[in-house]
């Protein structure tokens, strides 16, 4: 039974490792300027964690294989013969293991920690450039809507009391009174020019949501009552998906929008097209 147990553990581990090694299921290919650092950290961790996992499981299996005895007959369990054995102790004992764990894991932790700070800092501790394109995204049950400042480069103020999805006033704009709001473009999908920095202004109109674009390596919750800012640069033209990852109610699974990364020319055309539709 011990051998069977050991074999089972090994087989499970090998089968589990195969999809990882063959990369059967993997994150969507990165399309952002900052994403490579995250991917590097991810695969570095994968290698470290993978080796730790396989090594400890294999040793566990090996020890079970080696140090098990046939079960005593269950009829008289409490009278089973017990051999007094010269208990061999693990070389080095507890002290050795503790020291090994602190050194090995400590180094791993430090390495990952420092590595991690780098990619995190590059995203969150930097300021967007002055020429970054501002785009506002508003999350609400259960859709994203996007706002572009229009030719004047200014966003009109938001009036929550004017929000009316039934009148397609998703943001609560008042173009008749607010000069800045007159040329604001509101869209249901997001388009951005490739290789240009985007300054994303995140606003939630009701509950907590999240802005998760796996391909863009962007993931940030919306906090109602607190507008957050992100900045990023997309480097590859294409159509990607924005999904909500923070449980927001019954339509959570269907809260999504498309992200179109397009050339600068196409983006200008798109803006004009959208303006005509307003």
């Amino acid at each position: 039974m011990a051998k069977f147990f050991a074999t089972t553990i090994v087989v499970i581990m090998v089968l589990s490792a195969i999809p990882i090694i063959r990369n059967t299921w993997h994150p969507l290919p990165n399309i952002s300027a900052h994403g490579q650092a995250i991917d590097d950290e991810m695969w570095g961790t994968m290698i470290e964690a993978g080796i730790s996992l396989l090594a400890s499981q294999f040793i566990l299996a090996w020890f079970i294989w080696k140090f098990s005895v046939p079960p005593a007959s269950s009829a008289k369990l409490d009278k089973a013969p017990t051999l007094v054995i010269e208990a061999k102790s693990f070389p080095g004992g507890a002290t050795g293991l503790v020291i090994a764990a602190i050194i090995l894991v400590g180094m791993e932790v430090l390495a990952l920690g420092i590595f991690g700070i780098k990619s995190w800092a590059s995203m969150y501790f930097t300021q967007p450039g002055a020429d970054a394109l501002p785009v506002q995204v508003q999350a609400g049950q259960f859709a994203f809507y996007f706002r572009y400042a229009g030719p004047d480069g200014k966003f009109g103020p938001l009036h929550p009391d004017l929000i009316s999805e039934s009148n397609q006033n998703f943001f609560g704009l008042d173009p008749t009174h607010d000069q800045d709001a007159k040329d604001d473009l509101v869209t249901a999908s997001m388009a951005i020019p490739v290789n240009r920095e985007i300054r994303l202004l995140m606003h939630s109109k009701d509950v907590s949501h999240s802005f998760y674009v796996p391909a863009l390596r962007i993931h940030q919750d919306f906090v109602p009552g607190l507008d957050l800012q992100l900045h990023f640069t997309a480097t590859k033209i294409g159509k990607y998906e924005i999904v909500c990852s923070q449980l927001c109610g019954l339509g959570h699974y269907n809260m999504k929008a498309y992200l179109d990364v397009m050339s600068a020319d196409d983006f200008d055309k798109w803006l004009k097209q959208q303006a005509a539709l307003q």
């Binding site: 039974m1 011990a2 147990f5 400890s56 040793i59 566990l60 020890f63 079970i64 140090f67 098990s68 005895v69 079960p71 005593a72 051999l83 054995i85 208990a87 061999k88 102790s89 693990f90 507890a94 293991l97």
Partner: peptide, 11 residues
Amino acid sequence: IGSLYGARIRL
């Protein structure tokens, strides 16, 4: 795991 070493494990 280390304690399993040298043990007589009853399964």
